[in-house]
Design a protein around this nucleic acid. Structure first.
Length: 276
DNA sequence: GTCGTCAATAGGAAAC
DNA sequence: GTTTCCTATTGACGAC
C-alpha cells in the first residue's frame, strides 16, 4: 500500500432518515416519535462538534383552551352573518365540495359540484373567501398534533366536534401540518449536510496537505529511503509512522513519529483503522 | 404590486 | 373498492 492509498480513508456520510420514510404500519405515536427523534439520531450517530436539534416552533407552549367557549363563539359567528369567513367555509363544505365526502362521479355528484361552485360565490357574485382558523382552533389543533401527528377516525370526529369544524377540515389541517413539519425538517437536514460537507472538505484538504508533507519527507530523508517499504506504515487513525515489522514495538519509538492530532471527525466505531 | 402563509383541491400510491 | 396519506398546486388573504 502506498501513501496515496493510506489517505483513502473511505469516509462515508449518512443520515439515519429511515424513520421519516412512509411506514403506514406504524402507529400514530410511532410516526410522531420518528419525527421528533430524528434530530436526536443525527447528533448521536455523528460525531461531537456537530449537533442538531429540532428548530421547530411547532411545539411551542400552548395555553389552555376553554373548548366550550370556542364552540359558543363559533356558533355566534355562524349565526351572525353569511359573509363571515367561518360561516362561508362550512356552508361551502356542507354543499359537498369535498370529493371524498361525496360521490362526485355520479350525476348527483356533478350537481353537488355545481352547487358547490355556486356556493363558492357570495350573493353578490364575488369570489369565495378563505377560512381562517381562530387562535383557539389553531391552538387546539397544535395541541392535538403534538400528541399524535395522525388521527384515527374517532379522534378526527371528536376533534372536529370540539372545534366545530368538519372532519374533513381537521383532516386537511393535519395533512398540511405534516407537510409543513416535513418541509422544516428537510431544511434542517439540508443545513446539517451542508455543514458536514464543509467539515469533510476541510478534513480532506488537511489530509492532502499531510500527504504532500510526507512525500517531501520521504525524499528528504536518506534513512527513510533505506528502510524496506514493508516496514514503514502510517496509521491513518493516529497518524503515526512506525516500523510495523519490529516485533510489536510501539511505533512512537520509531524515528519518524508524527505528533498525533485530535480526532474531531472520526468515530472509532466507523473508522476503518482504529487498531492502534 | 409582490411575497409569504395557509386552507383547500386534485391526483396518485399504499394499505386494508 | 375504500380509506388514508403524500405531494404538488391553487387561490384567498394579510403584511410590507
Amino acid at each position: 500500500m502506498d501513501l496515496d492509498n493510506l489517505c483513502n480513508t473511505g469516509l462515508v456520510l449518512g443520515l439515519g432518515c429511515e424513520s421519516m420514510a412512509d411506514d403506514r404500519s406504524n402507529s400514530n405515536d410511532q410516526r410522531q416519535n420518528s419525527i421528533t427523534e430524528f434530530g436526536n439520531s443525527l447528533s448521536m450517530n455523528l460525531e461531537p462538534s456537530l449537533t442538531l436539534s429540532l428548530a421547530d416552533n411547532t411545539y411551542k407552549a400552548l395555553k389552555e383552551i376553554d373548548v366550550n367557549k370556542v364552540n359558543e363563539e363559533l356558533l355566534d359567528i355562524r349565526q351572525s352573518s353569511h359573509t363571515t369567513v367561518s360561516s362561508f367555509s362550512n356552508a361551502n363544505h356542507d354543499l359537498g365540495s369535498v370529493k371524498r365526502e361525496r360521490d362526485i362521479g355520479t350525476e348527483e355528484g356533478d350537481l353537488e359540484k355545481l352547487l358547490s361552485r355556486v356556493s363558492d360565490e357570495d350573493e353578490d357574485g364575488s369570489a369565495r373567501k378563505k377560512l381562517r382558523l381562530t387562535k383557539e382552533q389553531s391552538a387546539l389543533l397544535e395541541d392535538s398534533f403534538k400528541e399524535h401527528s395522525t388521527l384515527n377516525p374517532k379522534q378526527k370526529q371528536d376533534l372536529a366536534g370540539r372545534l366545530n369544524l368538519r372532519p374533513r377540515q381537521v383532516e386537511v389541517w393535519f395533512q398540511n401540518r405534516r407537510a409543513r413539519t416535513k418541509l422544516k425538517q428537510t431544511e434542517v437536514n439540508c443545513e446539517f449536510l451542508k455543514r458536514c460537507c464543509e467539515t469533510l472538505t476541510d478534513e480532506n484538504r488537511r489530509l492532502h496537505k499531510e500527504l504532500q508533507e510526507l512525500k517531501a519527507l520521504k525524499f528528504a530523508s536518506p534513512l527513510y529511503m533505506q528502510l524496506p517499504a514493508a516496514t514503514l506504515t502510517m496509521c491513518p487513525s493516529c497518524e503515526r509512522i512506525g516500523g510495523g515489522g519490529i516485533s510489536g514495538e510501539n511505533s512512537t519509538k520509531g524515528p519518524f513519529t508524527i505528533a498525533p492530532k485530535p480526532h474531531h471527525y472520526y468515530s472509532p466505531y466507523t473508522h476503518s483503522s482504529a487498531a492502534c
